[in-house]
Design a protein around this nucleic acid. Sequence first.
RNA 1: GGCCCCGUCGUCUAGCUUGGUUUAGGACGCUAGGUUUUCAUCCUAGUAACACGGGUUCGAAUCCCGUCGGGGUCACCA
Length: 507
Amino acid sequence: MKTRVRFAPSPTGSFHVGSAKIALINYLFARKREGDFILRIEDTDKERSVKKYEENILENLSWLGLEYDEGPEKEGKFGPYRQSRRGETYKKYINKLMETEKAYPCFCSREELEKEREKAIEKGEAPKYSGKCRDLTPEERKKRIENGEKFVIRLKVKDEDKIEFEDMIRGKVTFELREIGDFVLAKDEKTPLYNLACAIDDHEMKITHVIRGEDHISNTPKQILIGRSLNFEELKYGHLPLILAPDKSKLSKRHGAVSVSEYREEGFLPESLINFLVLLGWSPGDNREFFTLDKLEREFSMKRCKKSGAVFNEKKLLHINTLHIKSTEIERLTSLCIPYLIRENLLNPRYESDQYPPAMGARGIKTSYESRDGRIFSFELLKKIIDEHKDRMKKLSEITEIADYFFKSIEIDIDLLRWKKMKNDELADSIDKSINILSNIKNWEKEEVEKALLEEANRYDDRGKFLWPLRAALSGKDESAGPFEIAYLLGPKEAIGRLKKAKKILL
RNA sequence: GGCCCCGUCGUCUAGCUUGGUUUAGGACGCUAGGUUUUCAUCCUAGUAACACGGGUUCGAAUCCCGUCGGGGUCACCA
């Protein structure tokens, strides 16, 4: 039988990194076994389900590269894939449950139930339904329904038995049925609650393995019970440990950034998140840590998943991101960095005049970019600038702080120019030499610029006397790329201009 | 509180199935040093753990029991 797994988020919030990990493990499990990965939107709760969250989930799933075989916007044989559109199916099964007497209507009011619950908790017992409406006669049920009394639908659960299942991660897990009681299946004859809808859909969609978070472990016996009442084939379950916050509790919004889109906006690469997430509870068994999705598709194994929860460590994520940034094709990296530069208003796209405004989706229209002070940057030039900074970036958004001086005019401070205890006239002399050298370069190539500058630097007992003022004058910062690289990338006009400006403040 | 699950460096983990090859390995972080005009990269070193107690055994991180600790869950939410 073909392996079929599903990822079933409810659109009640932005796509959470914990959900992303569940989706990832399902995806890898399916790919490894050449099975299907299905996406199902669990939006039965109309109050809490929001369309924009569904869109957020879809968009970020795709951003992570977790393509599904069946799901919304990509209907397959077992659709629809949104629970809000599956009412007919649920109705059919609810009726069947009622007809076969596996389930019954319960007329107890919420207030009544709430009182019972409080009493149970006081006594230190597990709160569960008393079974009051279970043995109503068919006549009485009929009468009360006809009277228009409101009711919910409960499953009959035997008291004595226990339920066991073999969890793919944890091994044998056992629950006593008497702890569960007759739980509510549906709000009415056509409105299923989570456990019912889930069990029905897993069956209807021919799911073979349910892989989800540990927080669902106590739902599992309920879903098995429902399945048995409906003669469904039993599924295999696997419950993954939760992602923890630094205080070891379940990671949630109050701990800071938890949604995939937040990490995306900050400048994490999708492959970094994938790599980091898979390492939270899984390892290949040797010391390798750098993984891409397609490598994982071959190497992942459920057997190597840990049982214990793992703390989400942002420092480690950052480190993994630097690794992936370094190994990213410079073309792609540049394209990814440009939006950050635009967002910070360091760069503006220029369009060819006859094509402005550009048609949606048209390609190759953006020919170049313009800095705030009016200098033009081709994509090729930007590639070189980004390449020079990719070892200094932990995340893409940092490009705007690290390389800002390329794109705006800079303010130079006299103390910044000073290397150790150099006097002003020494500094002026050093900068003069730089101006001279750069002015005499005929062939403005990186190697030429570096060679000429280095030759001069080597004449000094301390190369810093020449190189530090140069670099400071070009960058306006105490931390930057190297002077040769900056000079070359700035071009002769801008580089010499900045040096002359620096010299002025020394006089 | 009931039920379920978990417990190796601060954090992510390898080792546990099949006890000895472990002075418990790697990574992140942190510290120090090297390379370097600065920053970053890179390189080297250091730091730090088997929750505790009892068994079983010639021998236990590894097997068993207990204790403690942590988490999840107990809805007409999902």
